[in-house]
């Protein structure tokens, strides 16, 4: 067992109201992405997955990066702009990790899937990598606490940890219908995986809110 050495969290604390607001805005960002694709460009995930995904992550990314950068750690040492840049830089890095993971799990490769994979992994990066990058920067201890030990402390940790895991687990389950012989267009890579990821992300956001509210209800949040 690795003992968590950070006893106190120097980052900005997040009140339940703020948490609700952040999650709500992130969720609205996604909804805006989908509706712009549907109503302005008349495309959706099934008809044109690549462009729709690009539209969604382009619209969603400012919401996520700008919001989470507000809650960066050590705000006195690290300017808001720096946090935003961290988030922007984390986007392609996280996308690479997500794409490699997906390919190891069996995502199709080949020229016709190239664009889709890139756009999908950028969206996944937005769900998983960008928020902690904006908040924690390159602090490996915090990263490990969130992703390896999965021992979130405090509401900010919940807000980062749970949706990220939710998106990944959702995407994992979303991959299961792909081999079925139903011959539906949405079984194509990465449509149902995206649906799974978004669903997992949304469910986990609700779960993190519930946990934050429960913790907020208890006057003394658990330190362990």
């Amino acid at each position: 067992m690795v003992k968590d050495s950070t006893a106190e969290n120097p980052g900005q604390s997040v009140s339940p109201t703020q948490a609700i607001l952040i999650h709500l805005i992130c969720g609205v960002g996604l909804a805006v992405g989908f509706s712009v694709a549907h109503n302005v460009y008349f495309i959706n995930l099934v008809s044109d997955p690549s462009h729709t995904l690009r539209l969604i992550w382009v619209i969603e990314s400012p919401f996520v990066i700008l919001l989470y950068s507000f809650f960066r750690q050590n705000p006195e040492k690290c300017s808001y702009l720096k946090a935003v840049i961290r988030g922007v830089l984390a986007l392609p890095v996280g996308a690479l990790v997500n794409a490699l993971g997906a390919i190891a799990l069996g995502a199709p490769v080949g020229s016709q899937y190239f664009q889709r994979t890139i756009n999908w992994s950028l969206l996944m990066s937005l769900f998983t990598f960008v928020p902690p990058a904006s908040v924690f920067g390159s602090s490996s201890e915090d990263w490990r606490r969130i992703f390896a030990n999965t021992k979130p402390k405090g509401s900010l940790d919940y807000m980062i940890c749970l949706p990220a895991h939710g998106a990944v687990v959702g995407a994992w389950f979303g991959a299961w219908p792909m081999p079925l012989d139903w011959e539906r267009p949405w079984q194509e890579w990465p449509i149902c995986v995206t649906y799974g990821a978004v669903a997992g992300y949304l469910v986990a956001m609700v779960a993190s809110l519930v946990l934050i509210l429960i913790q907020g209800g208890q006057q003394h949040p658990k330190s362990e």
Binding site: G101, A104, L105, G106, F147, A175
Partner: peptide, 24 residues
Amino acid sequence: LEEGKVANFLLATTAMFKLHYSIK
């Protein structure tokens, strides 16, 4: 029909699980 892919998917999942541990 795609059992090979399924087994590979599950193996990769366990490998990621292990990676998670090794990072930890």
